[in-house]
Design a protein around this nucleic acid. Structure first.
Length: 116
DNA sequence: ATGTTGACGCATG
DNA sequence: CCATGCGCCAACA
């Protein structure tokens, strides 16, 4: 069981309309937030077709089943907008589609949507 | 084996 | 409020 598989398995359990933070996931899996981010970043690459040479995914195909958009930072904001391989505001759109609202600062109300 | 790289978080100024 | 700095550690080259 790779470390990133733990992350994927947990993220897959996040119910629709709820979100989790990197720090929260890291705490639950006894990993650092950075590692969580790393795992998701890897997902993005796979999804973008940059499948790592000879190492596309861990056996299966987690990329298509992991609701990565439900993972946000501790401020309740989106962290993917500064990335090259993900369209701007894609994550925001996906979340809004699930009924999650953003305020004027592009932030989510953690009190309301955070899953525990 | 070793160095680099982060979808982060927290403390500090 | 914004800017830095550091910890942290798996995966990759």
């Amino acid at each position: 069981m790779r470390t990133y598989d733990k992350v994927y398995n947990l993220v897959k359990k996040i119910p629709r309309g709820k979100v989790m933070t990197y720090g929260q996931i890291g705490q639950m899996l006894d990993l650092n937030p950075r590692v969580v981010g790393w795992a998701l970043n890897r997902l993005a690459k796979v999804k973008a077709g940059f499948s790592a040479k000879g190492r596309p995914t861990s056996g299966g195909k987690p990329a298509s089943t992991v609701p990565w958009q439900r993972v946000i930072n501790s401020k309740g904001g989106i962290s993917t907008n500064k990335l090259m391989n993900i369209p701007l505001d894609l994550q925001k759109k996906l979340l809004e589609r699930e009924g999650i609202a953003f305020d004027k600062n592009q932030k989510i109300d953690l009190k309301k949507y955070l899953w525990k």
